[in-house]
C-alpha cells in the first residue's frame, strides 16, 4: 500500500459514510451539507483519476451553485418530518427499482472479470503538460457537437420555461425604475421661486 492508496481509501470511506448520512440523517440541513461533503470527496477521487477538469467542474457547479440553492430552500422551509414520510410506502417500489438498477450496474463494474471488461486496456498515464480541459473541449466541439448543442438547447428551454412559469405581470404593483430615477434632473423636481423679501416697516 502506498501513499496514493491511503488517500484513495480515506476519500472513499468519507464518501460512503457521508452518502449514507445524506439519506439517514433526520435534519434536512445536515443532509444537504453531507451531500456537499460527498461531492467534494468525489471530486478528490476524480482528481486521483487525472480527470481534473471534471473534478473542479463538479465542485464549481454542484457545490458552488446547485447545493447553495438547495440549502437556501431547505433552510427557509419549516419542514415537517412526519409529512415527508407519508408517501414512503407509495414510492417504495419505484425507489427499489432504481436501487436494483444501480446494484446491477455496480456489480457489472465490480465483477468486470466475468463480463470481459478486462480486455479494455488500462489508460496510459499522461505527461505533465497534457491538458484535460483542452482535449475535452476539442471533443465536445468536434465529434460530439450535435449532442452538445442539443443538450444546451434543452437546458435553455428548461430555463425559459422556469422563468415563464413564475413571471407574472401585475398591474397594481408599484416598483421603482432605477434607470428613470438616475436620469432625473434638478429641473424636473425643483422649482426655484423668487419671493421678494419682506421689508420692516
Amino acid at each position: 500500500m502506498n501513499f496514493q492508496d491511503i488517500i484513495f481509501y480515506t476519500f472513499a470511506a468519507i464518501l460512503v459514510v457521508s452518502a449514507l448520512g445524506v439519506i439517514t440523517v433526520r435534519n434536512p440541513v445536515y443532509s444537504a451539507l453531507l451531500l456537499v461533503v460527498a461531492f467534494i470527496t468525489c471530486a478528490g477521487l476524480w482528481l486521483l483519476l487525472e480527470a481534473e477538469f471534471l473534478a473542479i467542474t463538479l465542485v464549481l457547479v454542484y457545490v458552488g451553485a446547485v447545493m447553495v440553492l438547495f440549502l437556501f430552500v431547505v433552510m427557509m422551509l419549516d419542514i415537517n418530518l412526519d409529512r415527508l414520510r407519508e408517501g414512503f410506502w407509495k414510492w417504495f417500489p419505484f425507489g427499489a427499482l432504481i436501487a436494483l438498477i444501480m446494484v446491477g450496474e455496480m456489480s457489472m463494474v465490480l465483477m468486470g472479470r466475468y463480463f470481459g471488461l478486462e480486455e479494455m486496456p488500462t489508460p496510459s498515464p499522461q505527461d505533465a503538460d497534457y491538458s484535460n480541459t483542452r482535449e475535452l473541449g476539442r471533443l465536445i466541439y468536434t465529434d460530439y457537437v450535435y449532442a452538445f448543442e442539443l443538450a444546451a438547447v434543452l437546458l435553455l428551454v428548461a430555463m425559459v420555461a422556469a422563468i415563464a412559469l413564475t413571471l407574472r405581470h401585475r398591474e397594481d404593483k408599484k416598483s421603482p425604475n432605477p434607470s428613470k430615477q438616475i436620469q432625473v434632473k434638478k429641473e424636473d423636481r425643483l422649482r426655484i421661486v423668487a419671493i421678494p423679501s419682506e421689508k420692516k416697516e
Binding site: E52, F53, I56, V59, L60, V63, G64, L71, F72, N132
Partner: peptide, 25 residues
Amino acid sequence: DINAGLLYILAMTSMGIYGIVIAGW
C-alpha cells in the same frame, strides 16, 4: 502549477458562501 488554475479559483471562491449561509442559519 496546475493546468486548470482558473477553474480551481472559481470553484474555491464559490465555496466561500457556505460559511455565511450556515452562520446565518
